[in-house]
């Protein structure tokens, strides 16, 4: 599958990356949320610090919660953020 996906970041994930969103190309072999997180984690030590522990992160695909095993499918937007703390 080829195409592109907009990734948006919130809270400390956004602050530590220094960007609030980016567009990535979906290369062959990238099929799940977990595949994207692994790709981000491979970018370097700073990225690995943020993305290597998926237990500290939450994911939403087109504004619905997803898990590392969730397929990207035709989704346009992946949000990556820490556990929520509203209320």
């Amino acid at each position: 599958m080829t195409g592109s996906l907009n990734i948006i970041y919130f809270a400390w994930v956004r602050e530590r990356l220094g960007i609030d969103q980016e567009q990535i190309a979906l290369a062959d072999g990238i099929e799940t949320i977990g595949d994207i997180v692994a790709m981000l984690s491979d970018r370097g030590a700073d990225y690995a610090d943020i993305f290597s522990d998926v237990g500290k992160l939450r994911f939403a695909l087109d504004q619905d919660y997803g898990l590392p095993a969730t397929p990207i499918g035709a989704a346009r937007e992946l949000a990556i953020f820490p556990p929520v703390t509203g209320g």
């Binding site: 919130f10 919660y65 949000a79 953020f81 820490p82 929520v84 703390t85 509203g86 209320g87």
Partner: peptide, 19 residues
């Protein structure tokens, strides 16, 4: 509190911030 995507960041009286 566990589902809605809100995040709180505190700024202390000493100026330090914390998620």
């Amino acid at each position: 509190k566990t589902v809605a995507p809100f995040w709180k960041k505190e700024t202390g009286t000493d100026g330090t911030t914390k998620w």
